[in-house]
């Protein structure tokens, strides 16, 4: 069990670190899913966001990375 958070500085730093970790994890997980043949709608549904949002955020990077993307 982590110690109880009483210092707001620790709590705020944890928020910043969690956001960073979530971003890193999302980038890695979306790339792995697309390399494994997932479609944009499937990835979007798994993340709980729209297909347009996930496409806008990740498509350019994945295309430049040479990942072959399924259209649907």
């Amino acid at each position: 069990m982590p110690p109880e958070l009483t210092d707001p500085a620790d709590a705020l730093a944890a928020v910043a670190a969690l956001r960073r970790l979530a971003d890193q994890l999302e980038e890695a997980a979306v790339e792995q899913a697309m390399r494994d043949g997932w479609s944009w709608p499937e990835v979007a549904e798994a993340l709980g966001i729209t297909r347009q949002a996930v496409h806008k955020k990740h498509a350019k990077r994945l295309i430049e990375a040479g990942v072959s993307l399924r259209r649907r």
């Binding site: 958070l5 620790d10 730093a13 944890a14 670190a17 970790l21």
Partner: peptide, 11 residues
């Protein structure tokens, strides 16, 4: 610092 901040919330 990154790892410590995550650990404070058990991650």
């Amino acid at each position: 610092e990154f790892e410590h901040s995550l650990q404070t919330v058990g991650v």
